[in-house]
Design a protein around this nucleic acid. Structure first.
Lengths: 212, 212, 212, 212
DNA sequence: GATGAATGAGCATTCATTCAT
DNA sequence: CATGAATGAATGCTCATTCAT
C-alpha cells in the first residue's frame, strides 16, 4: 500500500503547534487501535477518546474538523507508515519480478510490524463511501496508485519480463489478495507473516512469469 | 416482536403465510439494494423501509426479530442465489482446473446477473463482527467453505493436477481477488464481467498449473 | 378483599355467546398469570396472548375494547373469586372480633388457594391511575368497601366490642398489612399462609381489643 | 454514554463537577415529581425532561447511564432524605416502644415534609422487579432493613418490653400499613399526617405491648 | 488550548390498536 | 368469529457536534 506524496504532505503542515500535533497523533493512534479492534461501526468518538485516555469527545472535535477529517488523518498516517516501510524494500530490488515480490512481501510483513495499521485502513476505506468530500480524493489516490502499478506492469510486459495479461486485473487481484489477509490475519490462528508473504509472492510470481 | 417474549416466529419451514413470505422477500430485496448502494452504516431500517415503499420501520421489526435477523436473511438469500447460479456451472466441469475456472468465472458473472447481491453480502460480512449471535455461524459457514476449497486443492495436488503451494494461501488469494472486484466493479467504468472473469481465471490457472 | 355486587354483575351479562365467554375467561386467566409473574409493565398483549396460547394479539383486542377493559375484567374476576372464598367464612362468624379474624385469615389463605389472583389485582390497582374511565369506578368500589369496613368497626366500638381508635386508620392498616404480604409472599422462602394469617389476625385482634 | 463502552462516569465520590451534580439533582427531583404524580409507567424520559425544563431526553441519558441508573438515584435520594429526617427522631427515644412510635410517626410525617418522595420510592420499588441489576441490591437493602427491625423487636421481646409474637409478621405489617398510607395519602381528602401517624403508632403500640 | 455540558437528530424496537379478509 | 398484517406513535438510547467558559 503505497502513498501518493500529495496526501502525506498535507498533514503535519505548518500552522500547528507542537502540543497540538502531539495531541492529534495521540488521537490518530487511538483511532487506529479502535478501528482495528472494534471495526468502523464501533469506532465512535467516545471509544476513541477513551482509548486515548481523554476525558471528553469534545477534545477530538476540537482537533479535527469532523469524523471524516479524523478518518482522513488515520488513512494518511497508515499510508505514511506503509510507505516508509515498503518503499526502501521495493527500491532495493532491480528486477520487475523482484520488485513485485518485495511489494507483496513487505506489505504482508507490515501486519507483523504494525498489526493495527492496515486493518484500520481497511475499515476506513471499506466504510467511507465517496460521499464525504475529504475522503473522496483518497479514493483517487488509491486509484492513481493502482493505475501506476498497472503501468509498471505494462512496462514489464513490454520488456518481456512478464507474460501477457490484463494489467488492471492483475493489480486488482494482488490488491484483493493482500486486503483479504489484512482483514483475516487476526483470525487465523498460526498466522506467520513471512511465510504467508513468501507464498503469496510465489503465487503472483507464477501468475505473471513468462512460461519458459 | 422478539423471540424472547413475543409470539415466536419460526424460521424457515411452515408457519409463514404467503403474504408474510412475500413481505419478507420484499424487505430483504430492499435491504440488499440499500446495502449495495449506501453501505452497511447507512442501511438503517428507515432507509430500507423507504426503499421498500413501506410507511414505517415498525413493519420491518414486525417481520424480522431484529436487525441481525434481517442481515442474516440477506446473507442467506445471497448465498442461495449464488449457489443456484454457480453450482451447476462448476459441476458441469470435470477437470480440477476446469472447476476452478468455472468457480471464478461464474462468481464474477454473478455481478452482472445480480449486481447488488454480492456487494450487499460483502457489506454484511465485513461489518458484522463475530459479536452478533445470528451472523456468527455464517462466519463458520464461510470458513468451512474455504476449508473445503483448500481440501479440493489438496486433492488436485495429490493427483498432480496442480503444482505444490499452500492451499490455504491460494484459497484466500482467490477469495480476496474476487471480493475486491465485487466491491469495486460498480466504480470501474468499462467493467465487463465476462472478460474480467476470464482474465482472473487465467491468472489463477497460471498460478496453480504445473509448469511443463 | 371483598367485592361490591355492582361490579361483579356487569361481567358475564347477556349478549355474549358461550364461546365468546370462554375465550374471555381464557384471556383473563392468562392475564392474571402474566400480571402475577411478570408485573404490570410486562403484561403486554403479546405476552398475554402467548400465555393463553393465542397466535395473535388481535384476538385480545377483538374480545376486549382495550387494555383497561381487560384489566377491569381481571379485577372483576379476582374480586369474584375472593368474594366466593371469603364471604362464607366471614359470615360463619357471629362476633365482631371473629369476623375480623375470619376476614384477615381467609384473605391471606387465598394466597394459597389462588396464588396468582391477589398479586395480579395488586398489580392492576397499583398501576392503574384514576385516569382511565373504566378503572375509575373500581377505585370507588374499593373506597366504598373500606368505608363499609370502617362503619362496621364503628358499630363494634359502639357496642363496646372494640376499643376506641380511628376506624379509617385501622381499616387502612389492615388493608396495607395484607397487601404487603400479597406482594411479598412469593419472595418469602418458607411462607405458610395459615400461620401467617393467624399471626396477622392476632396482631389486629390485639390492636382492636378492649384492654381488660 | 453507557458504562459499557463510553467514558465511565464514576458513581459517587469525586469526579463530578458542581454543575453536573446540580443537573443530576435537578433531574432526580423532576423524576420524583413525575413518579409521584403520574406513576412509574408514565415516568418516561420525555416527561421527566419536560418536568425538569430540559429540551431533550438526551440530556438525561447524558447524565445517567440508563433508566435504572436514574431510578436507583431516585431511590438513593429518597432513602437519604428519609434517613436524615427519621433517624434523629428515632434515636432521641430510649425505650423500645418510644422508638417504634418515633419510627412510625416520623415516617408518616415525611409525607407532609416531602409529599412526593415516599410515593416516588413506592413506585420504583413496586415496579422494578429484581431483573434490573442496579435496583437488585436495593431490594437487598430493604430486606436487610426489615431483618434488622425484626431483630430489634426480638431484643425488645427478650427484655420483656414487647409481648410474644412473630417479629417478621409484625415488621411486615408495620411496613405494609405505612406503605398503604404512602400511596393513598394524596387521595384522602382531610389527611393530616400528625394525627394519622399518632393513630398508627397507637395501633402498633397496642399490638406489641404486653398485656398488663 | 482545553473542557464539560448541552443539543437534537437519528437509531432499533415495542406497543396497543385497526382492518380487510 | 377469528386472524394475520399493518400502523405509527412512543420508548430508551447513542452519536457527532457546538459552545461558553
Amino acid at each position: 500500500m503505497e502513498a501518493k506524496d500529495g496526501i502525506a504532505k498535507q498533514a503535519g503542515g505548518r500552522g500547528r503547534t507542537f502540543t497540538e500535533e502531539a495531541r492529534r497523533a495521540q488521537i490518530v493512534g487511538a483511532a487506529i487501535e479502535v478501528l482495528a479492534d472494534a471495526g468502523y461501526a464501533k469506532a465512535t468518538f467516545s471509544r476513541i477518546a477513551k482509548q486515548a485516555g481523554l476525558s471528553s469527545t469534545g477534545m477530538i472535535s476540537y482537533h479535527f474538523s469532523g469524523k471524516d477529517d479524523l478518518m482522513r488523518e488515520v488513512a494518511a498516517e497508515v499510508l505514511r507508515v506503509a510507505e516508509a516501510y515498503m518503499l526502501p524494500r521495493i527500491q532495493a530490488e532491480s528486477s520487475y519480478s523482484g520488485r513485485l515480490r518485495a511489494y507483496i512481501e513487505s506489505n504482508v510483513a507490515l501486519l507483523e510490524v504494525h498489526p493495527k495499521h492496515l486493518p484500520a485502513l481497511a475499515e476506513v476505506m471499506t466504510n467511507q463511501r465517496g460521499d464525504t468530500p475529504t475522503v473522496k480524493d483518497f479514493v483517487h489516490v488509491m486509484e492513481a496508485t493502482m493505475n501506476e502499478q498497472a503501468e509498471r506492469i505494462r512496462l514489464a510486459q513490454r520488456d518481456g519480463a512478464f507474460r501477457e495479461f490484463d494489467p488492471m486485473v492483475m493489480t486488482a487481484a494482488i490488491r484483493g489478495a493482500i486486503d483479504f489477509v489484512v482483514t483475516q490475519a487476526s483470525r487465523l490462528p498460526g498466522f506467520d507473516a513471512t511465510t504467508y508473504g513468501r507464498e503469496l509472492a510465489d503465487l503472483f510470481d507464477r501468475a505473471t512469469r513468462r512460461t519458459p
